[in-house]
Nucleic acid binder design. Sequence first.
DNA 1: GACTTTGCAACTGATCTGGTTACATTTGGT
DNA 2: ACCAAATGTAACCAGATCAGTTGCAAAGTC
Lengths: 149, 149
Amino acid sequence: MNSDFAIGLHIVGFLTARQGQPLTSETLADTYGTSPVVVRRVLSRLQQAGLIETRRGTGGGSVLAQKPSAINLRQVYEAVTDNPQFLRRHPGEEGGVAPILGAYINELCSQAELALLEQLESVTVKQMDAAVRPRIIASHCRTKPKSKK
Amino acid sequence: MNSDFAIGLHIVGFLTARQGQPLTSETLADTYGTSPVVVRRVLSRLQQAGLIETRRGTGGGSVLAQKPSAINLRQVYEAVTDNPQFLRRHPGEEGGVAPILGAYINELCSQAELALLEQLESVTVKQMDAAVRPRIIASHCRTKPKSKK
DNA sequence: GACTTTGCAACTGATCTGGTTACATTTGGT
DNA sequence: ACCAAATGTAACCAGATCAGTTGCAAAGTC
């Protein structure tokens, strides 16, 4: 478990609040509290998943590639995660007791993880945006009144 | 995420299959594929949670402290885990954008994690046992016919 | 051409993980 | 009393993972 999901949600949440105005990795990094390179690593994955689009050069940055209502949080999670497992499986072996219990346990872990993913799936970026937008805009304008646009 | 939960499930599953006959940490370690000390670390936690009982000395070992029908897998998970979180939270700061989105995200993560835990809670050790006992007994007697009992 | 911004690889220090060693303690058997 | 079996626990180790940094190339704007 790394923090890429938290960063990814921050990214899509903030991008959504900005309604199409691109944000640079530096701004995203500052607002989250990390470095631009770390943000770009996550941006790269979101991009590959088709959730955002990025432009280089002056005035560049990232914007959402889909409508906020069309993106759910499971998509974000799976975009930024190599192996979407929350429960560690037994490193299966052959023969003996462990594989038998292990096979059952693995199946069970998968079901439990699915429950979590379905919970994430039930929330769209638009819903998230509706819950936090007003305060984000207010805060962003208050704390960085001099920045672009 | 470490493998203590997988080890914990192996322990309670195997203990249940043995129906009150104590198993040593060495046997549990061998059947899972790890070392006795690692197993004892998990056993210690299960014991503190009141799920198993352990006796030292010759003929010692661990047994279930409750009926299999009275133990669910969420109890096992929480017994062996310090901080039962699957999704990493934002290391909260003061002021700015992140705390606002972060507070919402944290709440959302908690809900999703709860869904997973409830899935675990819906399965009892007895149910798990029913699904795997026949094969475990068969395998254990086949691969270790010389051992105790 | 100068400047801005992303893309990406390589490296670093901190933390986590599982394993091992070592030793004390408890229990049972003789 | 003694010895063997077994747990309890702390300390330490090597490998993996993680977030951050540096450095530089590539792409885009003016």
